[in-house]
Design a protein around this nucleic acid. Structure first.
Lengths: 205, 205
DNA sequence: CGAATAATTGAAAAAGATCAACGTGAGTGG
DNA sequence: CCACTCACGTTGATCTTTTTCAATTATTCG
C-alpha cells in the first residue's frame, strides 16, 4: 500500500482551494481524482426539485471523485481552505497496470465511501431530530483535526443548513436542537462554530 | 469482464435458500462472497438499541458480502426462495493474481453498492412519508423480475415493516400511505403483495 | 381449522415544518 | 476604524405530519 502511494506521488499535483470554492461540480466531466491533505469538504447532490442534499463531509486522508462514470455524480465544495492532491484519472488508470496496489487502494477507498454512506443512513434513520444530531456530533468528534480532546471543543466547519441537509431536516430544527442540547447541558456553545461537548452525557442519551 | 466471470465460474458453487432464511449474519466471519442468480434479499443492520434497519434490497445479478473486514457488517436475509452462487473469499483473492478483470469486477460491484446507498439516502431525505414511498415504488418498478410492464402490477417481496425500516418510518405510516395513495388512485391494491401502479400519476406527484 | 404473523384503522399526543420576525457577527468599502 | 450590509442563526406561533398505543381485521402456514 505504501508502494502504491509512492507510485501515485509521482503523478499528483498540489492544489489549494479557498473556503467556499467548488472543486468539481455535479455533471462535469470526471477527469480527476482528488486526495485531501488538509481541510474539509462537503459533497452536495442537487435534486431536480431544487432541494440540495449533503451526501457526505470529507476529512483529511480521503480520496474522492473516484467514479466509473464519465461525469461526477455530485459536487465537491471546500468548507474551509483546503490543500488537495489532484490526479488525472487516465494516469491513475495507467498506473494500475504496473502497480496492482493502486487498484487495492482504490477499492479500499471505495469501501470507505460505502461505510460512510452506511453510517449516514443509520443517522438518518434515527427516530428523532435530537438523536440524529447527537449521532452527528459524536461521529464528528472522532475527527482529530476539529475536536480538541483536552478542552472537548468541537469546531464546526459547516453551517446549520449544511447539517440539516445532511440529516434530512430543516435548519430551524437544527438550531432548536442545539438550543435544547445546551439547556440540558449536553453541549455548551462557545460561539456559533465552537461547541463544547459533554461527551459522556451525549453517549448516555 | 466476461473473462473474469468465467474465471469465477470455476470456483463458485450453487446454493439455494428458502424464503426467510439467513444467508449470513452480522458479525459472522466473512468467508464467502455471494452472487444472486434469482430471487431477492434484504440487508439488515441491527442497532444496539434494538432497532432493525434495512440497508438495501438486493436483486438478481448483484454480488454481495464483499467486505474487507473479517466479519460481515450486516445480515443478508432471503425475502423469497433464492438461487445463489457462493465463492470462497480466499479463492477470489487468489484469482485476482491471474485475472485482473476480477478486481475490476469487484470494484464495479462496490460502485453499484455505493450508488444504491446514495439512492437510499436520497429517498430518506424526502420531506414527507408520501414522497419517500412514491420514490420507493418508482425505483422498485425498475426491477423486471417483479414488475409486469403490461399489467403495471408490482409484486412486493417485502413486508410493510421492511419498507418502513428501509425508509425510516413506522409500518403504520407505510400502511396509511398505501391507503392514501389508493384513495387518490395513484395505486390499486390487488392484494397485500400485489399493487397496480398508475406510473404516470406517480411520476407527476 | 386455528394459531401466529402481517396489515389496517382510530384517537390522541408528540414532533417537526412552515412562515415570519428579529439578532448577530464577519467582511467590505468608505 | 466604523458603519453598513448581508448571510447566517435564533426564536415564536401555528399548522401539518408522523408516532404511539390500542384495537381490529386479514392472511398465511402448519
Amino acid at each position: 500500500m505504501a508502494e502504491a502511494f509512492s507510485a501515485l506521488e509521482r503523478i499528483w499535483t498540489d492544489l489549494k482551494k479557498p473556503a467556499k470554492s467548488v472543486v468539481f461540480r455535479q455533471g462535469e466531466s470526471a477527469d480527476f481524482i482528488y486526495f485531501i491533505q488538509s481541510g474539509a469538504l462537503r459533497l452536495d447532490y442537487q435534486l431536480e426539485d431544487g432541494r440540495n442534499l449533503v451526501l457526505d463531509f470529507l476529512w483529511p486522508d480521503r480520496f474522492f471523485g473516484i467514479v466509473e462514470n464519465e461525469v461526477y455524480a455530485w459536487s465537491a465544495i471546500a468548507l474551509v481552505d483546503v490543500h488537495l492532491k489532484r490526479l488525472r484519472r487516465s494516469a491513475v488508470q495507467a498506473l494500475t497496470q504496473d502497480y496492482p496496489g493502486v487498484m487495492d487502494l482504490l477499492l479500499k477507498q471505495k469501501t470507505a465511501s460505502l461505510m460512510a454512506a452506511k453510517n449516514h443512513i443509520i443517522l438518518m434513520s434515527c427516530p428523532t431530530a435530537t438523536s440524529k444530531l447527537i449521532g452527528f456530533l459524536l461521529d464528528y468528534s472522532k475527527r482529530p483535526e476539529y475536536f480538541d480532546r483536552t478542552t472537548q471543543v468541537l469546531t464546526l466547519v459547516m453551517s446549520r443548513k449544511d447539517i440539516a441537509d445532511y440529516l434530512g431536516m430543516t435548519f430551524e430544527t437544527t438550531s432548536r436542537i442545539f438550543k435544547y442540547l445546551e439547556t440540558r447541558n449536553y453541549i455548551k456553545k462557545i460561539n456559533h462554530r465552537q461547541i463544547q461537548l459533554n461527551t459522556h452525557m451525549l453517549l448516555e442519551a
